[in-house]
């Protein structure tokens, strides 16, 4: 409170509406406010006077004051840019250290140990990934890098025991490679869990049939039929893109408008419930937790309707997919209480 530049007399006037022990009048309040207000706007700009006014306005701002502002702005910008860079470096070092301490070693047991003490896990986890066009970001460039990221995240998710993962990637390039993605993720599962314990997987995208090849289950079933205690986990992987956001909302509106024009629907029957049901069927349910691997929170067109109460996690200045972001997101999620406005 020290730094607001407001005297106690003013603040009691503001809070209680009292000055010197009696209620404040509108006139007094105006007088008290005067020093805080910006300059009065010029009287109604009549076209003839407009030029003269701007001329008379300029000197009032003052070139000296303007110059002082300019200098201070650049000092602030410089100081902060140094600060931001140092902070980024510091966070990078910190995350590297944590990454060394907490590594999953591609074994589900390690991941299970990391999440074991969490009170609750999201049932629907969502991540936003980027497709890096150029080769600047080594290791994660192009479609191959993207599929790698998806594989790793899917394996962590399955290890943590989360049944549903949706992956948002703006361009939707992955949607064209669903069988290939399925194969890659299955391979990663095998590397993590081993051939006998690996979770089953189905990959789908909105408006595309769920892809889960019937080839693998019978094979492994025959191998495990004598092991009834082993109930294998299942992971559903949903691929989302920018078209599942606004475009789907627009398509829905078009359909509704069409129906209204043919008299099969009255506009007054449209409510949040109807839209919710339609979008849930067409796209996805609300994710419980959304993890961003980007340095700042920008949603890049993620389906808006579904974001209502989603917990959004990002690690400031983090760049690229890594296990510690995933883990810290789960930790943060477990501590949060849902209040639903209450």
């Amino acid at each position: 409170m020290a730094s607001t530049g407001i005297t106690p007399k003013e603040s009691t006037a503001f809070r209680r509406g009292v000055v010197n022990g009696r209620p404040i009048t509108p006139k007094e309040r105006e007088d008290m406010l005067k020093p805080f207000l910006p300059d009065p706007p010029p009287p109604l700009p009549s076209p003839a006077k407009a030029q003269a006014e701007t001329a008379s306005l300029k000197p009032r701002v003052g070139p000296v004051r303007n110059f002082v502002h300019f200098v201070i702005y650049h000092i602030i910008a410089f100081v902060f840019s140094v600060f931001f860079r140092f902070r980024r470096a510091w966070r990078l070092v910190k995350s590297k250290v944590v990454a060394l301490l907490k590594y999953h070693h591609r074994t589900p047991e390690f991941i299970q140990r990391d999440v074991k003490h969490l009170d609750r896990l999201p049932q629907h986890l969502s991540v936003i990934l980027d497709l890096h066009e150029n080769d600047e970001d080594q290791g994660s460039a192009g479609l191959e890098g993207l599929v790698n990221d998806v594989c790793e995240i899917a394996a962590w998710t399955a290890s943590a025991g989360i049944p549903f993962l949706s992956v948002y990637e703006k361009t939707g390039k992955l949607k064209g490679y669903i069988p290939q993605t399925h194969r890659s993720v299955s391979q990663t599962f095998e590397a993590y869990f081993g051939a006998r314990r690996k979770p089953t997987l189905s990959v789908r995208a909105p408006h595309v049939q769920s892809y889960s090849p019937p080839l693998t289950p019978p094979q492994s079933d025959s191998a495990e039929s004598n092991d009834p205690t082993n109930e294998r986990q299942h992971l559903t992987l949903l691929l989302l893109s920018a078209t599942d956001g606004r475009d789907t909302m627009i398509d829905l509106t078009k359909t509704l408008a069409d129906m209204a024009q043919h008299g099969t629907l009255k506009p007054k029957h449209i409510d949040a419930n109807l839209i919710d049901v339609e979008l849930r069927d067409a796209v996805s349910t609300e994710p419980d937790l959304l993890i961003l691997f980007s340095p700042k929170v920008v949603l890049e067109g993620y389906p808006p309707w579904q974001l209502r109460l989603t917990e959004i996690f990002h690690l400031p200045d983090n760049k690229g997919v890594n296990y510690q972001v995933f883990l810290r997101a789960l930790h943060k999620y477990a501590k949060v209480e849902m209040r639903l406005g209450r």
Binding site: G5, T7, R65, V68, H69, I72
Partner: peptide, 28 residues
């Protein structure tokens, strides 16, 4: 500390400082 901060001269200084910072931000 509060008494000191809310004494008129200090309050005035802070107000000027705020104005200065706001004016500086406008540059960007």
């Amino acid at each position: 500390r509060k008494w000191l901060a809310s004494s008129p001269p200090v309050a005035w200084t802070f107000r000027q400082l705020r104005e200065l910072l706001i004016g500086a931000l406008r540059q960007g």
